[in-house]
Design a protein around this nucleic acid. Structure first.
Lengths: 236, 236
DNA sequence: TCCGCCAGAATTGTCGACAATCTGGCGTGA
DNA sequence: TCACGCCAGATTGTCGACAATTCTGGCGGA
C-alpha cells in the first residue's frame, strides 16, 4: 500500500497542475465566503474568472464535491453547500468518533520523535498565542495543525484521507463563516496539552476519551455561535 | 441540507450519463479482479475498451479514486490499488468505528417502519439462505444489504457517504478477491438478528457494541483467508 | 561493466467546439 | 384564469486534437 497522504499530496499548496491551482483558489473562496454558500456555480463563469478551460475546472469541481464543499446533480450543475445546524451536528458526530479513533491509534503508533515534535509545536503555539492575545484565526490554524498531526500519527491512510482531505475544509468553512472568535482559544490549548500527555503516556483509551470531549466542547462552542446568529437573523 | 445519498444517487445502477456507465463497469471489473490489482491504468486503452472518449473516462477515474479503487499521481497516471494485510487492517479499523456509530445512530433515528422493513429483509435472507446453502455471493450481498440499511438508518449524510460510497466497493474487493466462502454465513446471519433486536429496543449502546463485534469477527475471518493465501503463495 | 545523459515515444493535461439536456417564458386551449 | 405543451436560450456532457510532461531505450564516457 502506498502512502496515500492528502489527495495526492498537494493538499497545502503546490500547484502541480492548473487544476490544482484552481482547486485551491476555489476552496479558499468558498471557505471564506467569497463564493456565497448555497449559490449556484456556473462553469463558464468560473472558467473565465480563473482563466482556465472547463476541463481542469471540472476536475477541480469533482474534488470540491469530494470534500463536500459543493453538491452536484447530473445535467443540472453544482451548488455550494449550505450551512445548517443539522449539517454541523452530523459533521461533528463524525469528527468525534473519527478523531477519537485517530487519537487512540496515535497513542499506539506515533514514533517517539513525532511526539517530541508535537510537544514543541504546542510550546510554539503557546508563545504565539501569548503575543496575539485573542486573535482567533492563527489560533484556529494552530488548533487544526495540532489535530492534523495527531491524525497523521494514527498511520491509518483511510482515516487520514477522510479527516484531512474530505472533512477538513468543511470544518474550516463552518468555523470561518460563523466567526469563531470566542474565548475558547486558551481552553482549547489546555485540552491539547492534556491530550498530548495521554499520547506520550501511550494511554490510547484516555487519549480517545479526551479528544472526544475536546471536539464535543468545540461543537458546543460553535453551536452557541450558530444560535446567536439565528437570533440575529430573526430580528434583522 | 440536501439528501446527499450515495454519490448523486445512482450508486446502484442508473447510467444517467456515459461517465456513470463507465464508472460502474470499471468498478465491477476491479472488484472482480478482471482488471488486476496493482496494474497500471492506461487512459487511451480503457477509453477504447469501453467505447468512450477520455473526458468521461477521466471523470470516472476521479470517482474511482474517491472510493479508493485506484491511486493517481499527477502527470504519471493511475494504478489499481494493491490489496495487503495492512490495508485490510486499516480498512476494518475504520469500519468498526464507523459502523458502530452508524448502528448506534440507527437505533436512535430509524423510523419504526424502517425497522419493520429491516426485519422483513432478514426473514427473506433466511429463506434464500436455506435454499442456497453455502452459496457465498448472495449471502454476502445480503450481508452488505443489511449493513447498507443500518447505515442509511443513521440519517447522517456524511457517514452514509463515507461508508456507502467510499469504502463499500473496497470492502467488496477484499471479500471477492480473497474468496469469501467460509462457513461464517450462518453465524453472520445470527449476529444480524441480535443487532436488529438491539435496534428495535432502541438500545444504541448495545447495538454499537454488537456491530463492532460483528465486524471484528468478519475481519478475523478475512484475515484467516489472507493468511492461508499467503501460505499458499509461499509454496507455489 | 556501470552510470549519467539525451532523444524519441508514449502518456497525461488542457483546449475549443459540438451534441444532449435542462430552465424559463410564451402561446394555446379548456 | 389556469393548466398544459412547446420553443428558445443557456448550461452541462462529450468529443477530437494540441501542448506539456514523463517514461523508455540507447548512446557515450568513466
Amino acid at each position: 500500500m502506498t502512502i496515500l497522504t492528502t489527495q495526492h499530496s498537494p493538499n497545502w499548496r503546490s500547484p502541480i497542475t492548473a487544476s490544482d491551482r484552481v482547486l485551491f483558489e476555489i476552496q479558499q473562496a468558498i471557505v471564506e465566503g467569497r463564493i456565497v454558500a448555497g449559490s449556484k456555480i456556473s462553469e463558464p463563469e468560473l472558467a473565465r474568472r480563473f482563466d482556465v478551460s472547463r476541463a481542469p475546472l471540472r476536475e477541480a469541481l469533482a474534488r470540491l464535491e469530494r470534500c463536500h464543499l459543493i453538491e452536484r446533480t447530473p445535467n443540472a450543475g453544482a451548488r455550494v453547500v449550505t450551512l445548517s445546524a443539522a449539517g454541523l451536528l452530523s459533521l461533528y458526530q463524525l469528527r468525534e468518533e473519527l478523531e477519537g479513533l485517530a487519537c487512540r491509534l496515535a497513542a499506539e503508533q506515533m514514533a517517539d520523535a513525532e511526539i517530541v515534535e508535537l510537544s514543541q509545536l504546542l510550546e510554539q503555539h503557546l508563545s504565539t498565542q501569548r503575543v496575539r492575545e485573542g486573535e482567533s484565526y492563527y489560533q484556529e490554524a494552530g488548533d487544526l495543525d495540532f489535530h492534523y498531526r495527531v491524525i497523521l500519527g494514527s498511520k491509518n491512510p483511510y482515516l487520514i484521507n477522510i479527516l484531512c482531505d474530505e472533512l477538513y475544509f468543511l470544518v474550516r468553512m463552518y468555523r470561518v463563516q460563523l466567526g469563531m472568535n470566542g474565548p475558547r482559544v486558551s481552553r482549547a490549548f489546555d485540552e491539547h496539552k492534556v491530550i498530548l500527555q495521554a499520547i506520550a503516556n501511550r494511554d490510547g483509551e484516555l487519549a480517545d476519551l479526551l479528544m472526544r470531549r475536546h471536539i464535543a466542547a468545540s461543537r458546543r462552542n460553535i453551536e452557541k455561535q450558530l444560535n446567536q446568529k439565528d437570533f440575529q437573523h430573526d430580528y434583522s
